[in-house]
């Protein structure tokens, strides 16, 4: 897959995206100058903590930003065409058919008043020219694919008759039935239990790989992202602080924030059984995004911060690391004046 990435044009190219909210308390720059490319078939993880702006990037791509929010600038090129600022009617054609989205709470995506069958077939009716019988057959096939037992009977059931995990399977079925070229999943497994979460991550990966769909996985869960994604983009206060191949980011983070996030996860080696070691933590709190300090937004919490960090915004720059083994250059970019050294 990575070979093709070099040649094929990106499916999605986000350039200098700025999504701002004009609230009473002040201007919230939820997304502030974010750029990335997504190749066909690529799975990209968008990680960061609450307030990082990761969900707003997903909403911006889907054209779901409502006042007081607005896409203030930048381009969102989908398949070579800028879709930022398209009208609601134009977006509706793209949504569902070309780009599908999965939300954290499956209940918000399903209408409690209609059967599962109605809702799957409605998506098909909207985006295909299939007959009613073909739609039904397709819906049954899709439910079967996402692992719902007895799909024929389940078609006539209502959302509340499904468990949380099953509901999310239905949502995946609806999202994937029109074979979209891009799937945006916003915290799709956060509300679910570990055993169910693993099942669903597998299911989603199998679905996107089968259809050649690109995927943006938005989550706060670094471990889940590292399991799924080809590339990882780390956000802090509406900006990208680091992006690169998933293994590189996890194994050799260059930004102190990424490093802090990874170290914050309690992980114990089996040998380590003496007195408990303190977890390494990022001090302080995420700053108020309406009153960001000048310079690097992470500087107040960063142990490496210098005078320069408090004055001057770091730019996202490529520090290409040579991938282990292959000897090939892999773009790994970091926005930091004092990036961590690449340790072997």
């Amino acid at each position: 897959m990575s070979n093709n990435e070099q040649h094929s044009k990106p499916l999605l190219r986000v350039q200098e995206l700025r999504t701002w909210f004009y609230t009473f308390g002040g201007l919230v720059k939820a997304v502030d100058g974010v750029s990335f490319d997504l190749a066909p078939g690529e799975i990209m993880g968008l990680v960061g903590e609450s307030g990082g702006g990761k969900s707003m990037i997903g909403f911006s791509i889907m054209g779901l930003i409502d006042p007081p929010g607005r896409i203030e600038g930048g381009r969102i090129e989908f398949n070579g065409k800028n879709i930022a600022g398209l009208s609601e009617d134009e977006m509706r054609v793209i949504r569902g058919k070309e780009i599908a989205m999965i939300f954290q709470d499956p209940m918000t995506a399903l209408n409690p008043l209609y059967t599962i069958g109605n809702q799957i077939e409605e998506t098909l009716a909207l985006h295909t020219a299939l007959s009613a019988r073909e739609r039904r057959a397709k819906a049954i096939e899709m439910l079967h694919k996402v692992g719902i037992p007895q799909p024929e009977q389940r078609l006539s059931h209502y959302p509340h008759q499904f468990s949380g995990g099953m509901r999310q399977r239905v949502v995946i079925a609806i999202a994937m039935i029109a074979k979209p070229r891009l799937l945006i999943a916003d915290e799709p497994t956060t509300a679910l239990d570990v055993t169910i979460q693993a099942q669903l991550l597998r299911l989603m990966r199998q679905q996107v790989v089968e259809n050649g769909t690109s995927m943006i996985l938005i989550t706060h869960d670094l471990a889940a992202v590292s399991q799924m994604a080809d590339t990882i983009v780390v956000l802090y206060c509406g900006r990208i602080v680091e992006k690169g191949p998933a293994e590189d980011i996890i194994a050799r983070p260059r930004h102190p924030y990424t490093r802090g996030l990874i170290d914050s996860i309690p992980h114990e080696t089996a040998e380590n059984d003496g007195p408990k070691q303190r977890l390494s933590q990022i001090p302080g709190n995420v700053p108020d995004i309406r009153k960001l300090p000048p310079g690097c937004a992470f500087a107040p919490r960063c142990s490496r911060a210098s005078e320069r960090c408090r004055m001057q915004d770091p730019v996202l720059m490529e520090h290409n690391a040579i991938a282990m083994g292959s000897g090939k250059l892999r773009p790994h970019a970091v926005a930091c004046h004092h990036p961590l050294a690449v340790s072997p």
Binding site: Q197, A198, L222, H267
Partner: peptide, 18 residues
């Protein structure tokens, strides 16, 4: 439960103990 818990830096394997 232990098998299902996501581990940092390991790819999602096939469903073994799942």
């Amino acid at each position: 439960l232990l098998a299902a818990a996501p581990q940092l830096g390991t790819k999602l394997g096939p469903a073994s103990e799942q």
